[in-house]
Write a protein that binds this DNA or RNA. Sequence first.
RNA 1: GGCGCCAUAACCAAGCGGUAAGGUAGAGGUCUGCAAAACCUUCAUUCUCCGGUUCAAAUCCGGAUGGCGCCUCCA
Length: 460
Amino acid sequence: MKVYNTLTKKKEQLVPIDDKTVRMYSCGPTVYSYAHIGNMKAFLFMDFLKRSLNYLGYKVKNVMNITDVGHLVSDADEGEDKMIKTAKSTNKTPWEIAAMYTDAFLADIKKLNIQRPNVLCKASEHIEEMLEMVYKLYDEGYAYETSDGIYFDIAKFPQYGRLSNLDLEGQLAGARVAVNEEKRHPADFALWKKAPKEHIMQWDSRWGMGYPGWHIECSAMSRKYLGDQFDIHTGGVDHIPIHHENEIAQSDAFLKKQAVKYWMHCEFLQVDGGKMSKSMGTAYLLSDLEEKGYEPLAFRYMCLNAHYGKKLNFTWDGIEAAQKSLNRLSNLVLEHKESDTHIDSNVIEEYKQQFREALQDDLNLPLAMSTVWNAARNNVKSKSIYNLLMDFDKVLALDLDKKRTEAADDIPEEVTLLAEQRLEARKNKDWKKSDQLRDRIRQLGYSINDTPAGQVIKKG
RNA sequence: GGCGCCAUAACCAAGCGGUAAGGUAGAGGUCUGCAAAACCUUCAUUCUCCGGUUCAAAUCCGGAUGGCGCCUCCA
């Protein structure tokens, strides 16, 4: 498989360090509010990558962090923080808030058929591992102390800026004035912060009570679970310039060698051609889609239709199209399931080959999807194609053999009653009455379709 | 100001030197009392514009125009 490596700006052949298992780390959610569908796109990317690697025959071990410390400052000296607001208004502790949003996150990824990473680790439970790195970096002169914390000295790490192609000099010229006058360079970043009394989450350290800087958790936990050196690190493009740059600096300085071989980043989800924003109300949640009658898997389908490295434009028309496509695809899959016309095995092999090649080329899922459709639309309806498509579904994870035109199961009695009356009217060929009843049912938010098997009532 | 990405049919979106994948919408058809759903067929001589390289360019180079993102602990 070839993957685009942000570090080298090239597509490279993926060669696992340990030739048996690909070890991969993905930046996870910060659990102080609900994750929106933009966040989900990144987690879907991780899942597509893992499943594709498995499909292509690689073994994979993956780790994801849950960031449950760092944002959890108790006083609002930096303006409005959603976390604090929530904590105050609900009278809960940061720990409780974190637990609540972690649960919500896990429920969401489950709905999206995102496989739970092999290791899901919380920052708050790995303070010791983080301190181990901070101490060593400090002792070896990579970090210095200021009145409010321990900072990494980027001057000691000449490769700083390689990932994001940062020109530190140029950057400096236009940079805003450093807030922290004690920092030697504006880009120096905190490894450890000394905690003010009112900071709720704090731990003991050499420098007294404090809490970890916002980058060290990934370095410490990836090292703990994947070893000093591992293969792939994924995340959103927004993390390239600061978070991942800093991670590289602290990890590589700590190890005296390169920790991560391939850096893979997924582009943002936009809404109506622009930035997704909470203030504009476009930071939709999975539950928003569900409320409008879309399956979470329709969103998964949508993401499958664009390359991970490119921005995807979310629109309501787009999700509608995705849901329809998914419904039709499932229908076709079931058609193949129920038929057993013979088909030349070469045809099957050809599809399989195309699918594999698409995955191998830097996870070109949109291209893979064209093969999926070509196979599904094949005029010959065959069990072999059904098996093939279900094989593809190991990667797609769209539950393709799910019947999506089934009647909804929570039909209100009122609607059921009207439907029965309509059935009666149709028997009597009283079309006028039957159409009126259909209209009323539609007004109640349900659609009714006549099929050879009888009438089917669906929500929406 | 610094860094970067992208411009392909009504919309979403592959292709990245060899003559435009796929999905949605639209159109036509089968089915139906009529619809809907489902299924089938069809749908870009052309890839923002202008130059250049080449036997050959959406694909490479130069320029123009337009859109977007990051530089704020947002994936």
